[in-house]
Simulated scan of single mutants.
Amino acid sequence: MRAFIYVMSLLLAGPALAQTYPEKNIRMIVPYPAGGSTDILARAILQPMTEILGKPIIIDNKSGAGGILGTTEAARSAPDGYTIVFGNLGPNALNASLYKKLAYDPIRDFVPISKVVEVPFLLVTAPSTGINSVADLIARGKKAETPLTYASVGVGSASHVTGELFARQAVIKMQHVPYRGGAPATTDTMAGVVSVYFITPLEGQSQIEAGTLKSIGISTRTRSSLFPNMPTINETVPGFEGVAWFGILAPAGTPAAIVSKLNDAVSRAVATPGVQETMKKLGVEAKASTPEAFAETIKTDIDKWAKVISEANIKLD
């Protein structure tokens, strides 16, 4: 009852709060370790958002359980605009189907503020495999006596379900090989231990440029302006698309006026030349959205990946 009264008081006072918000530092929970991909992307927008809002945004790395611990803490935080979370496809969409007992509900317990970036996957292989295109990969998969293998950063990860989706839509058998993180997955792909790997540009761009990995396709529906010469997997496997995203969310009950103010700050920050250039160098596309559009993305991806996860019988509890 006390929590209900607190939330109602915030809702009623929302417009007045937004006029003075923020009056103190804002905590942004990053549910992964410092120095990782999520942390790097979150920190890229801190300075411009701080300048726009007039108060510092402080990163609080709360890692553990594949993003669950930090995301749970964010869900249980006061809905006053002073705790937000830098979420992504995993904890805010995939986990809804991977766990029977999740400590938070990705829809019920959060209000989306804005998407920040979209991250494609590059389908890579070792030059030594002789696989030069998606068509080559599929042809080899159909002829192989034993399934081809694909690496991922772990069971239930975005790279795992993307590989599963590809195998199903390409109608070939592939064996999933999970690793404990991107570094060992990348190393074994370069060595030809596994056939292919759906890698993010943040992880694989330097190896591709060095020639130790070869990218044969990108997972976006249409060709990316960041990789204009890279054919899409969709050109060979019609309808294929697998894109991760990162964005900012607040606890459910955060006043709409504060959500609007935060959304404006994110949108303006993402549009700055500095953020655009930083994201481009990382191989990702900085792209803000309305809260409504971000909410629809989350719902659509929960439904899309739930089907893949169910058919592949992927479970984490």
Score class of each variant (00 low, 15 high):
residue 7 V to L: 01
residue 9 S to C: 02
residue 10 L to V: 03
residue 20 T to I: 09
residue 24 K to Y: 07
residue 25 N to D: 14
residue 30 V to N: 10
residue 31 P to G: 12
residue 32 Y to F: 04
residue 39 D to K: 01
residue 49 M to L: 09
residue 55 K to V: 10
residue 60 D to C: 01
residue 64 G to L: 09
residue 72 T to P: 00
residue 82 Y to P: 02
residue 84 I to T: 07
residue 85 V to M: 13
residue 86 F to G: 03
residue 92 N to W: 08
residue 101 K to A: 15
residue 108 R to I: 02
residue 109 D to F: 01
residue 115 K to P: 05
residue 115 K to E: 15
residue 117 V to C: 05
residue 119 V to G: 01
residue 123 L to E: 12
residue 127 P to H: 10
residue 138 I to L: 12
residue 151 A to C: 07
residue 152 S to Q: 05
residue 159 S to G: 06
residue 172 I to N: 09
residue 172 I to C: 10
residue 173 K to M: 12
residue 177 V to F: 00
residue 179 Y to M: 07
residue 179 Y to V: 13
residue 180 R to A: 13
residue 180 R to H: 10
residue 182 G to P: 14
residue 184 P to A: 09
residue 184 P to K: 01
residue 188 D to N: 08
residue 188 D to V: 00
residue 189 T to V: 04
residue 190 M to E: 10
residue 200 T to L: 07
residue 207 Q to N: 12
residue 216 I to V: 11
residue 224 S to H: 12
residue 225 S to H: 11
residue 226 L to N: 15
residue 230 M to E: 15
residue 232 T to E: 09
residue 235 E to N: 07
residue 245 W to H: 03
residue 255 P to R: 01
residue 257 A to D: 15
residue 260 S to L: 12
residue 260 S to V: 03
residue 261 K to V: 07
residue 268 R to P: 06
residue 274 G to D: 15
residue 277 E to T: 04
residue 284 V to G: 11
residue 286 A to F: 05
residue 287 K to A: 13
residue 293 A to S: 14
residue 296 E to K: 12
residue 311 E to F: 04
residue 311 E to N: 03
residue 314 I to A: 02
residue 315 K to T: 13
